[in-house]
Amino acid sequence: AITFRFEGQEKAKKFYEKLMRQNLEATIHIHGDEVHVTVH
């Protein structure tokens, strides 16, 4: 698994949606202002 870190939720959401379109499995974790997107 690879984890990407984002400042702010907007960028993270766009990235997450892009992964979903590519049929990749990903989970999102929100830590205050920092958002972690883990790709499995």
Rank of each mutant, 00 (worst) to 15 (best):
residue 28 I to S: 01
residue 12 A to K: 00
residue 40 H to N: 08
residue 14 K to A: 13
residue 1 A to S: 14
residue 5 R to K: 13
residue 28 I to K: 00
residue 34 E to T: 09
residue 14 K to T: 08
residue 22 Q to A: 12
residue 25 E to L: 13
residue 21 R to P: 01
residue 34 E to R: 05
residue 16 Y to W: 10
residue 14 K to D: 11
residue 28 I to F: 05
residue 34 E to S: 07
residue 39 V to H: 03
residue 4 F to Q: 07
residue 17 E to R: 04
residue 3 T to D: 07
residue 21 R to Y: 06
residue 6 F to Q: 01
residue 19 L to V: 08
residue 38 T to G: 02
residue 40 H to D: 04
residue 33 D to Y: 08
residue 31 H to T: 08
residue 36 H to M: 09
residue 38 T to W: 06
residue 5 R to G: 07
residue 15 F to V: 02
residue 5 R to Y: 15
residue 2 I to W: 06
residue 2 I to Q: 05
residue 39 V to S: 02
residue 19 L to T: 02
residue 4 F to W: 07
residue 23 N to V: 04
residue 11 K to Q: 15
residue 3 T to Y: 09
residue 7 E to G: 06
residue 24 L to H: 05
residue 38 T to D: 04
residue 5 R to H: 14
residue 23 N to H: 10
residue 19 L to E: 01
residue 17 E to W: 05
residue 24 L to E: 02
residue 22 Q to F: 12
residue 14 K to M: 11
residue 16 Y to R: 02
residue 32 G to F: 07
residue 33 D to L: 11
residue 39 V to G: 02
residue 33 D to E: 10
residue 30 I to F: 10
residue 35 V to W: 15
residue 19 L to M: 09
residue 23 N to Y: 10
residue 36 H to A: 03
residue 37 V to W: 01
residue 9 Q to R: 07
residue 10 E to H: 06
residue 23 N to C: 14
residue 7 E to Y: 13
residue 5 R to I: 15
residue 1 A to L: 13
residue 39 V to P: 04
residue 6 F to G: 02
residue 28 I to M: 09
residue 26 A to V: 14
residue 3 T to F: 06
residue 13 K to M: 15
residue 35 V to P: 00
residue 13 K to P: 01
residue 1 A to D: 15
residue 19 L to D: 00
residue 28 I to H: 00
residue 14 K to S: 09
residue 23 N to A: 05
residue 2 I to R: 06
residue 39 V to E: 02
residue 6 F to K: 02
residue 2 I to M: 08
residue 14 K to I: 12
residue 8 G to R: 05
residue 21 R to E: 11
residue 8 G to Q: 11
residue 6 F to V: 02
residue 38 T to V: 14
residue 30 I to R: 07
residue 30 I to G: 02
residue 31 H to V: 14
residue 25 E to W: 09
residue 38 T to H: 14
residue 18 K to P: 01
residue 16 Y to F: 10
residue 9 Q to I: 15
residue 18 K to Q: 11
residue 19 L to R: 00
residue 39 V to T: 03
residue 30 I to Y: 11
residue 8 G to N: 15
residue 5 R to V: 15
residue 4 F to H: 09
residue 35 V to R: 01
residue 17 E to S: 03
residue 32 G to Q: 07
residue 17 E to A: 06
residue 26 A to M: 07
residue 33 D to T: 13
residue 9 Q to S: 12
residue 16 Y to V: 10
residue 30 I to N: 05
residue 10 E to G: 04
residue 11 K to H: 10
residue 26 A to P: 04
residue 39 V to I: 14
residue 38 T to S: 04
residue 29 H to K: 08
residue 18 K to L: 13
residue 33 D to S: 11
residue 24 L to A: 04
residue 23 N to E: 05
residue 29 H to I: 12
residue 4 F to I: 15
residue 18 K to I: 12
residue 8 G to S: 15
residue 38 T to M: 09
residue 8 G to P: 01
residue 22 Q to D: 06
residue 29 H to C: 12
residue 12 A to Y: 03
residue 11 K to A: 15
residue 12 A to I: 03
residue 13 K to T: 08
residue 19 L to Y: 02
residue 36 H to F: 14
residue 11 K to L: 13
residue 9 Q to E: 14
residue 17 E to G: 03
residue 16 Y to E: 01
residue 37 V to R: 00
residue 4 F to C: 15
residue 21 R to L: 12
residue 32 G to K: 08
residue 11 K to R: 09
residue 2 I to F: 07
residue 36 H to D: 02
residue 29 H to Q: 10
residue 8 G to K: 06
residue 40 H to E: 06
residue 37 V to L: 03
residue 1 A to Y: 15
residue 29 H to R: 08
residue 1 A to K: 13
residue 35 V to M: 03
residue 11 K to I: 11
residue 13 K to F: 14
residue 6 F to N: 02
residue 13 K to S: 07
residue 24 L to K: 06
residue 22 Q to C: 15
residue 28 I to E: 00
residue 27 T to N: 06
residue 40 H to R: 11
residue 12 A to G: 04
residue 26 A to C: 05
residue 9 Q to W: 15
residue 25 E to P: 12
residue 2 I to Y: 05
residue 29 H to A: 10
residue 5 R to E: 11
residue 29 H to E: 13
residue 22 Q to R: 09
residue 24 L to N: 02
residue 2 I to T: 06
residue 4 F to E: 09
residue 7 E to C: 15
residue 13 K to Y: 14
residue 30 I to Q: 07
residue 40 H to T: 10
residue 37 V to I: 09
residue 30 I to M: 08
